[in-house]
Amino acid sequence: MKKQIAKLVVVENTPLNVKHNLLELKSHSPLTEMLPGQFVEIKVNGSESTYLRRPFSIHRVDYDKNTIHLLIKVVGKGTKSLSELEAGDSVDIIFPLGKGFSITENEEVLLVGGGCGVAPLYFLAEQLHRNGNTVNILIGGKSGEDILLHDQYKAYGNVFISTEDGSLGEKGMVTAHSIFSSHAGFGKIYCCGPDGMMRAVAHYAEKHKIPCEVSLENTMACGIGACLCCVVESVQGNVCVCTEGPVFESSTLKGWTVENEIGCSLD
């Protein structure tokens, strides 16, 4: 899968709420094949404080329309500037980067996404559904407005929601959702979200001997394995999240197989 630098054109930039946008980018040449969990690096123009590219998970690929969808959360100047892009604007992008999720076949699987961590899960749910899996998607957030685009997942699986304030779905942390106690025997768990949430889910998976893949979002500079800035400690030592990940089997990450200390461990 050859990486490329390209200029893509904004088709649509849809605000989902005050903090999130869905950015659809079109390529003039046919899009290369991409995998769920892979990411892109976007150059943000116009500010000296946004010198480096910004990495984003691929939310969805529409090969018919030749577009890539990205879910953007505004956290700083770079993402703010991307949220203000308009249709017709051009975006300097490098893609596809990293290793994606491994797609299992004919199993019952659980996808867990927290906040903007749902970004790669749409693409993943689509592929898992296509490969004959029974897909369960659990989405968590602080309140109802943090649960992004939850209706779109229904085409590919059962959707479960939890919010900390109880405004949508079950009340509580995503990791306290009843699906963990009511369902048994997932063939695989896929997870993307805040570090503490992923560690808790990984711990649950370990305890129940379920293979678990997590997608990390370490700070990056190059995105192509040259600078060695984004490393995570794995059983093989420090490895680049941008090339060896961002998706890792949680059992290969050092310190991820012990009970976490953030108070949301799962039985």
Partner: peptide
Amino acid sequence: EGNPYPRMAETPMGMLNAVGLQ
């Protein structure tokens, strides 16, 4: 093995790194 993460900070028109010769 180099230094622990985080090893990078973006700064105005530049970046700091602390990879540590991994």
